[in-house]
Amino acid sequence: MYRRIPLIVCFIFGAFMLIQFFVPHRVSTEFYEMTLEWAQIIYAFALLVGALMLMKHHAVNATRKSSDDRPFSIIVIAGIATMCIAGLIWGHGEGTVFNWFFQNVQAPMQSTMFSLLAFFVASAAFRGFRARNTQAIFLLIAATIVMLGRVPIGELISPVIPQVADWILNVPSMAARRGIYIGIALGSIATSLRVILGIERTYLGGS
């Protein structure tokens, strides 16, 4: 029962959305637009589930005295609470407290977090990236040409470098990527068909 209803729902909506693609009639479009709207509403709740799970985890942790991470969980809960109160009471547009937190706390820290990778790439370049076989040699040569060819200094060294970089990107690299895309597309179509027909049920989870 608990398994059958989701499978039926999945089949009805999946098959309809597939068939609708070929049927421009107004009735089909009307039901299609409504389905799109429902899917978005439900998806928004699904997103909230993720946030709720995280809050639950940290709320439990914050009340547990023995936990080493307790102060950090309290910080997380405080952060969530601050943003929710600020955003849901005073709004989220320009000039609000919510927006200030985003611009001066969240945005700078998040982009700094990712900029750490520039350092890690440098360190890995010295200690990890090895031309251990011909394949890796090919990779590193292509990488070097692109790295030089796509910045001003490549042009300065030789005008040929940017041209070679252009060719690599537009011809062999592009074509290899296309081969991957075709493979992925066939795989995705196969998975989607299995999902609609209820053969593939991993998404329902265990038990």
Binding site: L18, F22, V23, P24, H25, L186
Partner: peptide, 19 residues
């Protein structure tokens, strides 16, 4: 209104072949 979008016939054939 139309019941079938003829411009998408090739997609339909492709989907049928895959199926």
């Amino acid at each position: 209104p139309q019941f079938f979008n003829t411009k998408r016939l090739n997609v339909l054939i492709g989907v049928i072949i895959c199926c």
